[in-house]
């Protein structure tokens, strides 16, 4: 074997894919060629260095990852924006509900209404002007309608359509 022939099978030699016969022929060449010997030895040392990084067994690895879950995290900026929007939404809702409950009429403030769609106008006449007439209508409907808030909204929707 000469140097060129060795170069053709060097990858197989380092990768341990040569037969014992071929390995013997290479070793014979290396024993008589210092240049090839230095090259092959240095590459073998590199393979050995890489091999220092051993790892745990498959069974141990399977045990280590038991119970793992993927937690998909949003980017920090996105999380901050979403959190801010949520807080703002809660505050706005609280403000609106707070105003509505503060200003919502009591039963005695609401005029008794008939079954027709004039209720909205009749109630609006009784409004102090600071309360949105729709809230008064809703309150009135709740008082009158046995189906409660849902029914009140349904009637309100019908009134708007007229």
């Amino acid at each position: 074997m000469n140097c060129n022939e060795l170069a053709e099978v060097l990858a197989d030699y380092l990768g341990d894919e040569l037969s014992s016969v071929d390995r013997k022929a290479i070793q014979q060449h290396l024993s008589s060629c210092p240049t090839c010997a230095r090259e092959v030895e240095s590459l073998q040392e590199t393979v050995t260095t890489l091999g220092q990084l051993d790892t745990i067994s498959h069974a141990d690895a399977a045990g280590q990852i038991r119970g793992l879950q993927i937690v998909q995290r949003r980017p920090v900026i996105q999380r901050f924006v979403l959190a801010s929007l949520r807080i703002a939404a809660v505050l706005a809702l609280g403000f609106v509900l707070g105003r509505a409950s503060f200003e919502s009429p009591t039963t005695s403030d609401v005029m008794p209404a008939g079954p027709s769609g004039d209720n909205r106008h009749a109630v609006a006449q009784a409004s102090t002007g600071t309360i949105h007439p729709d809230w008064l209508v809703i309150a009135e409907r709740i008082n009158q309608n046995s189906s409660g808030l849902a029914g009140a909204f349904r009637h309100l929707a019908k009134d708007y359509k007229r």
Binding site: T55, I56, H58, A61, I65, L68, Q69, I70, V71, Q72
Partner: peptide, 19 residues
């Protein structure tokens, strides 16, 4: 959170490569 098939051999291999 997403559950993933931890029975798959692939994930144990991933852990070994990472380790």
């Amino acid at each position: 959170k997403r559950d993933i098939d931890l029975q798959s051999e692939a994930w144990a291999n991933v852990y070994r490569w990472a380790y």
